[in-house]
């Protein structure tokens, strides 16, 4: 990994590898819990006691006995289940935490995108493994949805790269000192949020785990495996919120308060936005979304990239 970028210290270099990895893991867990807790609060409409429900069900899942299906492909199934949270952790590795990332490469944004794309394989395997109709259908749906959102997601990340003149996450944050990217890239921001919900198959994009396919990719999961997948999903959504904060909302920049507090406030704000909007909408069927993604979102994000490129050439971001 090239740390050779001038004077940029990763959190691993600054605090030691083990504490830095631990930090990322703890942040991932907290983000996952945060997403699940906010979601519970909004869905149940009950008081603050409801927000502890995800913890309780997490503990219950750990103790639960695993069910299995007839003739599953156990190797691939387990691999898929384990990959979901690991990929969430890895995508969080390039999100600046306290001003530093665990990994810093010259292509952080592409790394984030690559982790999300490996999630395709992981979720497909979670659907494939149990050898069951509903789970397999969920797997198919995830890929269809992936084909719809992948290009808009890439273009929105590239737009950020154009604005920052770098694909390194810390450079992206630094480039927003004077102006948050969300102001000149509203389309990219909205598309990023929507696609984040899509790759965590959550909210209106939850059809891979939809009730109409009896839970889809989740339908045959139980015990620790269910916990891993649910945790990974929530952590992915949290990581996406943290990434949206870094890429569009100026990261940890803000007056009066210390940086990490600002970053936390913004990230929690994005999570609440996710839940409030996501839970108010019914699930969007993949066959409807695919046409809109290709006919509307791709041209829109390309146009957004063009606008930002012209602004960048004219020295707007300098």
């Amino acid at each position: 990994m090239s740390d050779s970028g001038a004077g940029i210290a990763t959190s691993a270099a600054a605090w030691g590898l083990a504490p830095a990895v631990l930090l990322v893991a703890v942040v991932a867990l907290l983000l996952a819990f945060g997403v699940a807790a906010v979601d519970r609060l909004v869905v149940s409409g009950a008081g603050s006691r409801a927000m502890w429900e995800p913890l309780r069900s997490g503990v219950r899942l750990m103790a639960e006995e695993r069910r299995t299906t007839l003739a599953p492909d156990s190797l691939l199934w387990r691999l898929g289940c384990a990959s979901v949270p690991v990929l969430a952790l890895l995508s969080l590795a390039v999100v600046p935490l306290g001003g530093r990332t665990l990994l810093s490469t010259s292509a952080d944004l592409v790394w984030f995108n690559a982790m999300e794309s490996i999630l395709w394989a992981a979720v497909w395997l979670v659907g494939w493994g149990p050898n069951a109709v509903h789970a397999l259908t969920g797997g198919y749906r995830f890929l269809i949805q992936g084909l719809s959102y992948e290009l808009p997601l890439m273009f929105s990340l590239i737009t950020v790269g154009i604005g920052a003149q770098s694909l390194r996450a810390t450079d992206v944050v630094a480039a927003q000192e004077s102006l948050w990217f969300v102001l000149t890239m509203p389309v990219a921001f909205a598309v990023f949020l929507a696609t984040a919900a899509a790759f965590a198959f959550w909210g209106p994009f939850a059809s891979p785990a939809g009730v109409d396919v009896a839970g889809g990719v989740r339908s045959e999961l139980s015990g620790v495996e269910r916990l891993l997948v649910e945790l990974g999903r929530a952590a992915f959504l949290g990581a996406a919120a943290a990434m949206a904060t870094a890429a569009f909302l100026g990261g940890d920049a803000g007056p009066w308060l210390p940086g990490p507090v600002w970053q936390l406030v913004k990230t929690v704000g994005v999570v609440v936005l996710f839940v409030l909007i996501g839970r108010r909408l019914p699930v969007v069927r993949p066959e409807r979304f695919v046409e809109v993604a290709w006919m509307v979102l791709i041209p829109l994000t390309l146009l957004q990239a063009l606008v930002v490129a012209v602004l960048s050439l004219s020295g707007f971001y300098a």
């Binding site: 592409v110 490996i118 395709w120 198919y140 694909l167």
Partner: peptide, 26 residues
């Protein structure tokens, strides 16, 4: 590729190949 410090090529390889394999599997 990562060991060779070719970050972009490495990540793009992972990205493209995973998507390709997932579609190919289907």
């Amino acid at each position: 590729l990562i060991a060779f410090d070719l970050d972009y090529l490495a990540f793009v390889t992972a990205l493209m190949m995973t998507i390709e394999m997932a579609i190919m599997a289907v």
